[in-house]
Amino acid sequence: MSAYNFAFLDEQTKRMIRRALLKAVAIPGHQVPFGSREMPLSYGWGTGGVQVTASVIGPDDVFKVIDQGADDTTNAVSIRQFFERTTGVRTTTRTDAATLIQTRHRIPETPLREGQILVLQVPIPEPLRWLEPREIETRKMHALEEYGVMHVRLYEDITRHGHVETAYDYPVLVNGRYLMRPSPIPKFDNPKLDRNPALLLFGAGREKRIYAVPPYTPVRSLDFEDHPFTVERWDRTCALCGAADAFMDEIVVDDKGGRMFVCSDTDHCERRRGR
């Protein structure tokens, strides 16, 4: 194996990212710029998450990677192997056994504990970007708590669809102060953000931003008084384990449009089946 530093990044870079993480933890939900490095995977494939993981992972960590809830997709496997090669740490598919979990687009069903770290991959960190393309302006809006416009977006959804159509990356208010994008997790997972005992870290590599939600921080999904926030419900249970309250994937099984619903979180499903 070639002589890469532990977890690929050099120590100075890790220091820089840790400083950004400390700032982020000190100001929950606030986006901290950082010197995002070139990583051996393309922008849009989790470079931010990988850099955060690389900066916090240590030899005693037990590491899990999921992509859309599954440990066995190409992306999850690639990232897990990357860290196996550059750190030699133990890896696992079990949420309750991991100390450090990197995830794309889901929060695990199994509740997290104090001491665990969840690293989320973020494409666009700025919740106001849909409305305001200028960075100087969005920074001011965050600084001055000018968040009324986010409700304009929800208003438009209700006007067009009768309800808030946003189903993932649903905007939240962190610690009553900062408006944040939780990354493209389904809104089903938003309640898990609220007062989670674990440390939640968010990395956007292409946009060069880091933010964090420290343990037990209140996180509230935006809504209207007469259109309160709700999560998805299915009228099915998982075809494999029978779970009724997990986030489902819909899988097409044949050419005739036959489909089945299974838990998106593979570890959760396996445990329920006693594996």
């Binding site: 968040y147 009324g148 416009v149 409700h151 304009v152 438009e156 006007t159 008084e225 007469d226 259109h227």
Partner: peptide
């Protein structure tokens, strides 16, 4: 939404 924006900016939360 154009008309309601300033209201929402001031904290109006009832659609």
């Amino acid at each position: 939404a154009n008309v309601g924006e300033r209201l929402m900016a001031l904290g109006a939360r009832h659609y």
